[in-house]
């Protein structure tokens, strides 16, 4: 029987990347320590700052919220209703249930009620890929919710697998502009709140395990719009490599941060200087009207 690395009791999970196994208590401790280390090393959240966690009802965002609350952070959640049938109904229910159970505050935004469109029909009308309309809406509305609510920082549940997959995609296309912005912390400036990803040291499997062991109900079903997208393909490719040589994903991502990312930042910084307020909503943008306001017009016509 596999033993816990920390207390030598019976283990419930093995993490090959760390060549370690843990019992429930020591695993939860391990997760909190990884988050603590990320927050400290990348200076994500300062003492007394107010955090807004982007909550989707999935394992990553609920685990992140749980860990931040347990660590004593002043962390509220924000949920964005995308109008994707049962998937959205369930994910909303899970987010609400978690907030109620913890007595935490959840800010709720509905695309359909508040902006007159949903992702399936709106993306079609605007002739955009659903995930691109969705990502754009999330970025814009989470920023707005943070600024409106007086939060210092937006925290998202991106984990090591997400970041490694995005990096893989960006490297395959040598998307140097994206490479310059792929950091665990984006500073708050030019009217944007700071953005942080405290789960970058934890893998996807660890986040699912965290929720199971903490008794957190999350939505296991996939968003139906994700099917066949490139992001999932990159994750599978990386997991095939990881199975052969554990630690590859972490070496790929952290090696990039340590030794390569700085080469791409000047371009990303240059793109940020030309920002002015959107003539429709006031959010910072390079054009006259921001991409989200543009999407709303096209999605609702």
């Amino acid at each position: 029987m596999t033993k816990c690395r920390r207390c030598k009791g019976p283990a419930v999970i093995d993490i090959r990347r760390h060549n370690a196994a843990f019992c429930t208590d020591c695993f939860l401790h391990h997760c909190r320590e990884q988050v603590r280390k990320s927050i400290h090393d990348f200076r994500m959240i300062a003492e007394g700052e107010r955090v807004l966690v982007a909550v989707s009802g999935g394992k990553d965002s609920l685990a992140l919220w749980d860990i931040l609350l347990d660590m004593g952070y002043d962390a509220d959640g924000v949920y964005l209703g995308l109008g994707i049938g049962d998937y959205s109904n369930e994910s909303h229910r899970m987010s609400r249930a978690y907030a109620d159970k913890r007595g935490a505050k959840l800010v709720e935004i509905e695309l359909r009620d508040d902006f007159g469109f949903d992702i399936p029909t709106g993306s079609k009308a605007a002739r955009r890929v659903p995930c691109s309309a969705c990502g754009l809406s999330k970025r814009h509305l989470f920023n707005k919710a943070a600024i409106d609510g007086g939060y210092d920082v937006v925290a998202t549940g991106h984990n090591l697998d997400d970041e490694a997959a995005v990096l893989f995609g960006n490297v395959l296309r040598w998307a140097t502009d994206y490479l310059g912005r792929q950091l665990p912390v984006l500073p708050g400036e030019h009217g944007f709140p700071r953005k942080v990803k405290p789960l970058v040291r934890l893998g996807e499997r660890e986040m699912a395990a965290y929720c199971v062991l903490r008794g957190i109900d999350y939505i296991v079903e996939e968003c139906p719009m994700a099917e066949g997208n490139k992001h999932l393909g990159y994750k599978e490719a990386l997991n095939a490599i990881e199975e052969q040589s554990p630690g590859s994903k972490a070496a790929f991502y952290f090696g990039f941060l340590d030794r390569a990312s700085a080469m791409f930042t000047p371009q990303a910084v240059a793109e940020r200087v030309d920002l002015k307020p959107c003539s429709s909503c006031g959010a910072p943008t390079t054009g006259d009207v921001c991409a989200f306001c543009n999407l709303v017009v096209k999605a609702t016509r």
């Binding site: 990553d60 995930c131 691109s132 996807e204 968003c223 997208n229 999932l232």
Partner: peptide
Amino acid sequence: VRPVISGGAV
């Protein structure tokens, strides 16, 4: 046996 991969574009 629960899959742990979730994935929208980010």
